[in-house]
Design a protein around this nucleic acid. Structure first.
Lengths: 135, 135
DNA sequence: CTTGACCCCGTAGTAACTACAGACCTTATA
DNA sequence: TATAAGGTCTGTAGTTACTACGGGGTCAAG
């Protein structure tokens, strides 16, 4: 098969082309070999790694966390326990964020409900933002 | 009372001092008057406006949205309907985010559960990230 | 041989701050 | 009055994770 150019790699792993270059710049992806005309030349292992990264991003891991995951995924380092720790931390962050957003949801929905009620002398949303003690 | 310096204003409205300057730079806060020695000199209306902004940020409104809210809050423009629209849009964004995070939560919790199960030949989290079809 | 699609690099822009550096000013204490 | 601590000034750069651009070189098809 043809040498894998950056565009093909990007499509294969469903990562934006410019993002591939970005990942290389920040050292998340290894520098690939180059053709005579200086084009990047990737192999299947790059597709795999890049797809791994994309999936991890989709699950909400940060670049820093992905670096750790990739290190832990190295052969010989099958340290499931450490991966578990990382994932647990991440999960609890996700849960904290959900809890926060649910509070916001309640606040916003409450204000909007008051908008629909008849007894609104002023705008309930603006009131809430203007006064120190929102309902 | 003393002229309200930036530090005092920051404390009173519970906004980081540097953020106050930032808000002024981007035109979210009006430029205050200055003392003879070029210190910013604020009044109670600044505390109010800054607190309004902080509460709106806490509820997750973007700076752009807050600009609109502030414009709508101007006296004479009591356009509750427009505020309601803005808030409704924001609420649906919050709900969408919650839905996304809940999916992540399920995925992460599922992988971790498999970690605890006995039948783990490899790391379930890494497996999930490595294979195109996670369970 | 030309056209269009691809690739190169470096830089700058995005959101919403936060953190300096180096200078000046004010207030409290000795 | 001197000085030391702490507050304020400006402008710039760093943060996260990209995305977009400009100005060029390269490759494959017709």
């Amino acid at each position: 098969m043809r040498p894998l150019t950056i565009g093909t790699l990007a499509k294969a792993s469903r990562v934006h082309l410019e993002t591939v270059r970005y990942y290389e710049r920040i050292g998340l992806m290894p520098k690939p070999s180059r053709t005579a005309s200086n084009y990047r030349n990737f192999g299947p292992e790059h597709v795999e790694r890049l797809s791994f990264i994309r999936r991890a991003r989709e699950i909400g891991f940060s670049i820093r966390e992905i670096r750790e995951l990739l290190a832990l995924a190295e052969p010989g380092r099958a340290s499931c326990a450490e991966v578990q720790t990382l994932t647990t931390v991440h999960l609890s962050e996700v849960r904290a964020k959900i809890a926060d957003l649910r509070k916001l949801e309640t606040i916003l929905a409450g204000a909007l409900e008051r908008c629909l009620g008849e007894s609104a002398p002023a705008c309930p949303v603006l009131d809430m933002l203007a006064s120190p003690r929102p309902s």
